[in-house]
């Protein structure tokens, strides 16, 4: 199932919202930079950077890949199917 819009029409519809969200994100990063102390060596900042790299690429399914970037890996030892001790 897809919409009847062309890619150009979709871009027209999405452009200002995308621009706004990008500027919001840039301002958030600036705000962290302006805060006291050095930029945090926090793994969440690395996640944000990797998320931005996904956005900058041309590969599809960006939303799924960003979600996976922010997900804990599945530990098969935790599976209900794993043998019980």
């Amino acid at each position: 199932m897809s919409t009847s819009s062309s890619a150009s029409e979709m871009l027209d519809s999405e452009f200002l919202g995308m621009r706004c969200r990008l500027i919001d994100l840039a301002a958030s990063l600036d705000r962290i930079d302006r805060s006291d102390g050095a930029p945090p060596a926090d793994p969440r900042m690395a996640q944000i950077r990797r998320g931005l790299e996904i956005l900058a690429g041309d590969a599809p399914d960006r939303a799924v890949r960003v979600q996976l970037e922010f997900s804990l890996p599945y530990d098969s030892n935790l599976s209900p199917l794993a043998p019980r001790p």
Binding site: Q67, L68, F70, S71, L72, P73, Y74, D75, L78, S79, P80, L81
Partner: peptide
């Protein structure tokens, strides 16, 4: 929620599949 969603969803699916 959030970072636990994928893991928890897979665990629930595993449980039901069995």
């Amino acid at each position: 929620h959030l970072e636990h969603k994928l893991m928890g969803t897979r665990m629930i699916l595993d449980l039901l599949r069995a």
